[in-house]
């Protein structure tokens, strides 16, 4: 049984959002929406997280940050881009400082539209991301089987 389905832990990073989507992500945790009933926890730490929620578009400064956070998350992991800006840059897509959507930097699995995305949409996005895990988990276990007994780490 895949327990990722029952306990997806999220990491939220505000790339260059206007706060609109951010506070809606936060609002998901609070009593009206209460995502903990679905086993979702906002960890705030890439090493504990399964799902990376990114709001806002990528800019020159935060590109490496987003990359680092993504790399530090243990596999399997899923990225959810939230809001118009994270999808494509949104209203700011013409700004000189932006690299457009999140998928310009890291692979995105689920796109949640909206400006600002509503909490219901965000929760739906997370649950769709959970469904993604099934595929990823299968891929991972296949890999694991082939590289059994060998440390996954090439650096070591």
């Amino acid at each position: 049984m895949n327990f990722l389905k029952k306990s997806p832990w999220i990491l939220h990073y505000d790339a260059s959002s206007c706060n609109g989507c951010d506070i809606e992500v936060l609002a998901c945790l609070t009593p009206i929406y209460d995502v903990e009933r679905l086993g979702i926890i906002n960890t705030g730490n890439p090493k504990h997280a399964d799902i990376l929620l990114i709001t806002g578009a990528i800019n020159a400064q935060n590109q490496s940050v987003v990359q680092t956070l993504y790399e530090q998350m243990p596999a399997p992991k899923v990225v959810v881009a939230i809001g118009a800006c994270a999808l494509s840059g949104g209203i700011f897509s013409q700004c000189y400082n932006l690299h457009q959507g999140v998928d310009s930097t890291i692979p995105v699995d689920i796109y949640v539209p909206g400006c600002a995305a509503r909490p219901e949409a965000i929760i739906d996005g997370v649950l769709q991301a959970v469904a993604c895990f099934n595929q990823k988990q299968t891929i991972r276990s296949n890999q694991k089987r082939t590289s059994h007994g060998i440390k996954l780490d090439s650096h070591h």
Binding site: F3, K6, S7, D34, E36, R37, G39, D50, P74, R140
Partner: peptide, 27 residues
């Protein structure tokens, strides 16, 4: 969760968490 006016996770949630973590990559 109830004190905080929320519904809260199922009782077995800690088991799910542990089993999930156990199957994840260890970095």
């Amino acid at each position: 969760a109830r004190i905080q006016n929320r519904y809260g996770p199922p009782l077995l949630q800690p088991f799910y968490d542990i089993l999930k973590l156990w199957n994840k990559q260890t970095s």
